[in-house]
Amino acid sequence: MSRGQGNARRAPVALRLCVAATLFFVITPIILSILAGFVVNYPTGLKSGLTTRWIQEVWAVYGDTLARSIVLAFACLVIAILIGTPCAYALSQIRSRWARALEELLMMPVAVPGLATALALILMYGHFKGFRSSTAFILVGHVLFTLPFLVRTLIPAFANAELRALDEAARTLGANFAQRFLGVLVPAVLPALAAGALMVFTLSIGEFNLTWMLHTPLTRTLPVGLADSYASMRLEIGSAYTVIFIAVVVPTLWALQAGADALQRYFTKNR
């Protein structure tokens, strides 16, 4: 990595202003929402005093959405890894027309707006009432939307020439396909797998476009609950809910990210 630390030039003023403005734009609403979640009365401001009442109210009304979203994100992650990893490997190895077609199909739920995908799903499978009203219906949408990101991260990792040599080495040592895939190939792409998994989790936790259409009153997720609170509750409650979202999701993601980084470091050290 080549970062200009040794000959630290100062950035041009315009560039520094641009960065400062961006930072300000990103940070301000986050701070505002945190404040608003704890003040007694937002229009009056801090003078009205601080309270945890709003947090408690959110917990009472929307507590279930938190658990559901996290379970959903992990379920989505597990499915994506289980079916996406073999798929990415196969796609990295073959150049047949059918494989290319599948790769194209895989990108469609990302390329086409989520609303369209959700609509197609509802109009096709909406009349299976048990399925329609279960969290599995949302899970299908999330897997469709997140899987491409995992597969796309894994394909270059699997196509790596060094990895091909590892595969050949294992073959000459007598390992069959399952032994090579699970014992050599997958461990060797773990950093990419971790990066892709992080992406899947992030996208699933925050997914709204599909989920808003696919959910039922009994299968609300975090973003759905948030939208509901913004539309029907007072501003302080919406803010408190946002605070909870950040307090739960961001540390989870940071922990996952730290894990992925550690893996990456472990693999690149002394290479």
Partner: peptide
Amino acid sequence: VPSEKRHIGMVFQHYALFPT
């Protein structure tokens, strides 16, 4: 016979040691 059943040993140019 597939490679894994030939019972051979091979040494590769760039070692191909399993990093894990």
